[in-house]
């Protein structure tokens, strides 16, 4: 990180030295703008940015996908906020974002501290990272098997005298189970990122701690935390962005999804958007569906800006 910044400032200084026009290689490079950046720019603008702007536009209309679009202003937003289903989905998204997020962070940080100087660190790190590469669908399907009435959990509990185990996959219990599954499968990824941050701390800081007689808590408070603060910030931003997208695991969780739509108690805003637009069970309401998506985007933007403000201030250079 610090190397990049010095290199950049060096090149900036060099550019300033050469004067406004830059060297011939710089001038030549500048001509490559269109052939080099053009294709990426066009594809990205056409199939990502324009749809995103289109979403904001559609959310102001009442539209069933075909036929005329009727401009209704912010009515769709008012409508979704009065919709109990949306409020439930939104609440679930917030639960994922904050409760699951907090659990992941506490666990990941604890794991990082234990892992930091433990034997076999690499093996552990490699194993706990792997779930990140697996489609969350897989966990949803597996959970259905593990928690079904004759499944593994209940057979495990039987020897302990639990003869009437809770109905794990009852509609009201599914969402807490999803949350637990997400904590179990995502913590490893964030541990890996935090580890990369903690590993960057030069060992002589710890030596200094030992010489100064700092205890474990003081070392954590005055060395490890301040020096990994920016990594924490990055992780928080990452989780904010990815938690709002959570869809697959809810879609198949428990495999009990009846008509193909998960029980409404476990919906998130992503599921709400998808079902409102594409379920085929009622007239698609594209306006309300995109309004829900735009609300999640607003949530992400606000939180990311807030996190950047809150976490940026004392990034320590070392």
């Amino acid at each position: 990180m610090s190397r990049t910044t010095t290199r950049r400032s060096l090149s900036a200084a060099a550019a300033a030295e050469r004067g406004q026009g830059g060297s011939s290689i710089d001038r030549q490079r500048r001509k490559l703008l269109v052939p080099f950046v053009g294709p990426a720019f066009i594809v990205y603008t056409l199939l990502f940015i324009i749809p995103a702007i289109g979403a904001a536009w559609i959310s102001l209309h009442e539209w069933a996908g075909s036929g005329p679009m009727k401009f209704v202003g912010v009515k769709n937003y008012i409508r979704v906020f009065q919709d109990d289903l949306f409020m439930k989905s939104f609440g679930n998204t917030l639960l994922l974002l904050f409760v699951v997020g907090a659990a992941i962070f506490i666990l990941a940080f604890a794991m990082t501290l234990v892992l930091r100087d433990m034997a076999g660190k690499k093996i552990v790190r490699n194993v706990i990272f792997f779930p990140h590469l697996i489609n969350a669908l897989v966990f949803g399907v597996l959970a259905g098997f593990i928690f079904n009435p004759g499944g593994m959990v209940n057979t495990l509990l039987k020897p302990f005298g639990v003869t009437e185990p809770p109905a794990w996959l009852a509609q009201d219990n599914i969402f807490p189970l999803i949350m637990a599954t997400l904590v179990a499968t995502t913590t490893g990824y964030f541990t890996t990122i935090l580890m990369a941050g903690v590993d960057r701390i030069p060992p002589y800081y710890y030596e200094d701690c030992a010489l100064a007689g700092a205890n474990a808590w003081q070392r954590l408070r005055y060395v490890i935390l301040p020096l990994t603060w920016d990594v924490f910030g990055t992780c928080a931003v990452l989780w904010t962005i990815s938690s709002v997208k959570i869809f697959e695991i809810i879609w198949v969780f428990g495999g009990s999804s009846g008509a193909g739509i998960p029980p409404t108690q476990s919906w998130t805003t992503a599921v709400y958007t998808y079902v409102t637009a594409f379920s085929g069970q009622s007239t698609p309401a594209y306006g309300a569906a995109t309004a829900s998506a735009i609300i999640s985007l607003a949530l992400v933007s606000v939180l990311v800006v807030f996190l950047r403000r809150a976490m940026r201030r004392d990034a320590v250079e070392f």
Binding site: A40, Y44, L47, F48, I49, I50, P51, A52, G54, A55, I58, G65, I241, V244, K245, F247, T269, A270, T273, Y274, A277, F278, Y286, A289, T290, S292, A293, I294, S296, L297, V300, S301, V304
Partner: peptide, 21 residues
């Protein structure tokens, strides 16, 4: 900055306009 902006846009936002387009 323009490219990085896309990192924060969840897939469900572009889903419907993409489908229509």
């Amino acid at each position: 900055l323009y490219f990085i902006l896309g990192l924060g846009i969840p897939a469900q936002v572009i889903l419907i306009p993409l489908f229509v387009m």
